[in-house]
């Protein structure tokens, strides 16, 4: 392809350019989203914290308990932080290209780089919030996650899954504005089904089989295995999740590449 950036110097040089660009984009995104003049980072902590306290209060007042004797506030907050990652990445997808047009004046920056930088940062930021929350629970309540590395691995998988969906939605946004209208609605409507507020073992067996077609439920189950270990039953299939991630990302990259030709800046 002679549409490439700098005169062709081989695959290695192209790869180094891409790494450099993604690094620069991530730094730029970091300062614009979490810089000192912007309180965006506060909400990253504020929203799950508010939700957690509200849910905790409701359960305390009603005296309601959860299946398996789980602590409701802990369960909801960890679920919500993971959902926050999924929702954050997907909701931004339809507007991501329009909001980054000035970057595309630089030929070395591709749509893929822009989206990857944003999604990586979102994933890292949410992982940081989770680490802080779990660290706080450990220090204050003495509650230690069974497998912290499994929690973080599941968050990385959620980030990659959402990134694949994001690529597809971003590519579609070049052709139609429909997704700008319906994506938020869709993420709210599907929220109860993602797995953020329930576990597979709460469902009757035949319903479990249907629910486990949903890849995000597997990711939430992985996180809960990381949090609770074997003290609660979890069901997940990592190759199934990885299959979804690879398929979504490959399709997303192909769609984005095809759509780029039609993008008017």
């Amino acid at each position: 392809m002679s549409d490439a950036t700098i005169p062709a110097e081989g695959l290695g040089a192209a790869f180094r350019t891409q790494l450099r660009v993604i690094g620069a984009l991530t730094l730029r995104e970091l300062s614009s989203r979490f810089g000192k003049e912007n309180l965006g980072y506060l909400w990253l902590f504020g929203e799950p914290a508010l939700l957690g306290s509200a849910i905790g209060a409701i359960h305390l007042i009603t005296g309601h308990t959860m299946p398996g004797g789980l602590d409701p506030a802990f369960f909801m907050v960890t679920g919500y932080i993971m959902f926050y990652l999924l929702r954050g990445v997907i909701n931004r997808a339809p507007g991501v290209i329009y909001g980054s047009q000035s970057l595309l004046y630089h030929r070395c920056i591709t749509l893929f780089d822009i989206i990857l930088a944003k999604d990586l940062l979102e994933t890292a930021a949410t992982m940081f919030v989770m680490a802080l929350f779990l660290g706080g629970c450990w220090l204050i309540l003495g509650k230690r996650p069974a497998h912290i590395e499994m929690v973080m691995w599941s968050m990385l998988l959620m980030g990659l899954f959402a990134h694949g969906v994001c690529l597809l939605l971003a590519a579609a946004s070049i052709y139609t504005e429909v997704f700008e209208r319906v994506t938020h609605l869709f993420t709210y409507l599907t929220m109860p089904f993602t797995g953020c507020f329930y576990m597979a073992f709460w469902l009757p067996t035949d319903l479990q089989r249907v629910a486990l077609w949903n890849p995000t439920l597997h990711i939430f189950e992985m996180m809960r295995y990381g949090l609770y270990g074997l003290s609660v039953p979890t069901q997940f299939d990592q190759p199934y999740v990885l299959g979804w991630i690879v398929a979504l990302n490959l399709l997303g990259m192909a769609a984005l590449r095809a759509a780029r030709r039609h993008l008017v800046i």
Binding site: S2, D3, L104, R107, R260, L263, V264
Partner: peptide, 12 residues
């Protein structure tokens, strides 16, 4: 500049 891509043909 490569900001937009040609509909057909190519830029070397």
């Amino acid at each position: 500049a490569g900001v937009e891509l040609p509909s057909t043909g190519r830029v070397e």
